[in-house]
């Protein structure tokens, strides 16, 4: 691990002033559950590490008429224990449950969950975000059982974020701050499929800090997350789905269906969403929606099974949201 300067700012203003314009200038430290590994593996070697855990304004969960504000340094455990979250956003609690290490739930933050780097084993072995060596895509030609099944682009890793799909489905916004001001990005646009090796998988810039997440009021919308997991203990889901259903009586007025761990970003399944509008959720409808959600999947040489898993995840998330699981 290369030596670095450690900064411990007390305010957001101080913190943003410590960041630079390049990724190598500074790294933001919150829970550290990903950053430390990245630094030990020399995948990130920042000159400065900026600890934001001491910045009060980045913490806390508060509810208002407009919705729910979640501070970036709220831990996974804090989020899952919050009464408002538990009451209105079961999809977040269910996604949090998928982070199966109590240590990570205690240390890891919601902001960190969104900003963590992909777990692609070629990336983690030092072959870059796109995993290209000598002009060959290592992912396409190598071992890809945990990789993307929506594969129409150069990036074939899967977004590691546990909360991303749920936040996209809930229509959340992500607030970013830099020394020159703040901006707000739709959660759906926060995640980006990088088109070249130098690009990042999130919209955050090197001089910005993710400060908070704002989820619009649920207004009776039903939501759920379902993860297909190989292991119950510490493991990444093989495929996941988060859904949010605005209801009109027993029928779906509008639906958001977002897949996780199947693409470089949380993957909105538009075909499933339109199929659900005006329907009552039954096992058959849920299954149809699952089928529609993966209709345009193009799996790699070793992960066709994930198409089936994504389909089942959608079905089960819908049934859970409708209280029929």
């Amino acid at each position: 691990m290369q030596g670095f300067e450690y900064a411990n700012p007390a305010t957001l203003k101080e913190a943003t002033a410590l960041l630079g314009n390049g990724w190598g200038d500074a790294a933001v430290l919150a829970g550290g559950t990903d950053l430390l590994t990245l630094m030990k593996e020399y995948l990130m070697s920042p000159k400065r590490v900026v600890n934001i855990k001491g910045i009060k304004e980045l913490g806390g969960i508060s509810k208002s008429g407009a919705g729910l504000r979640i501070g970036a340094t709220v831990t996974v455990d804090e989020l899952m224990s919050n009464a408002a979250v538990r009451a209105e956003y079961p999809s977040l609690v269910q996604a949090g449950r998928g982070i199966t290490s109590p240590q990570i739930r205690n240390m890891g933050t919601v902001g960190g969950d969104l900003c963590q780097r992909p777990r692609c084993w070629y990336f983690r072995n030092g072959f870059g975000l796109l995993g290209v060596k000598d002009g060959k895509s290592l992912v396409r030609e190598g071992e890809n059982k945990y990789h993307a099944i929506f594969t129409g682009q150069p990036a074939l890793f899967v977004s590691a974020s546990s909360f991303g799909p749920a936040l996209v489905a809930l229509g959340a916004k992500v607030k970013l701050a830099s020394a020159s001001g703040t901006r707000e990005v739709d959660a759906a646009k926060f995640f980006v499929a990088p088109q070249n090796e130098g690009a990042r998988e999130i919209a955050l810039l090197p001089n910005e800090i993710l400060t908070e997440i704002v989820i619009p009021a649920a207004r009776g919308a039903k939501n759920a997350t379902y993860e297909v997991r190989h292991k119950d203990a510490l493991d990444w889901p093989l495929a996941a789905a988060s859904v949010s259903l605005s209801m009109k009586g027993a029928t779906v007025a509008s639906a958001r269906v977002v897949l996780g761990h199947v693409a470089p970003t949380p993957h909105a399944a538009a075909a499933a969403e339109s199929l659900l509008a005006g329907k009552t959720i039954t096992e058959a409808v849920a299954d149809e929606a699952g089928k529609a959600a993966v209709a345009d999947a193009k799996p790699l040489s070793g992960n066709a099974y994930k198409v089936q898993l994504a389909r089942v995840a959608v079905k089960r998330a819908l049934l859970a949201a409708a209280g029929k699981a």
Binding site: Y122, N125, K136, G142, Y146, H230, D232
Partner: peptide, 18 residues
């Protein structure tokens, strides 16, 4: 086979029961 490496020489994808 391409890189000749062990891809899961870690305790993340070298899966052990909890």
């Amino acid at each position: 086979q391409i890189t000749g490496r062990v891809l899961n020489a870690d305790m993340e994808f070298y899966k052990l029961a909890g």
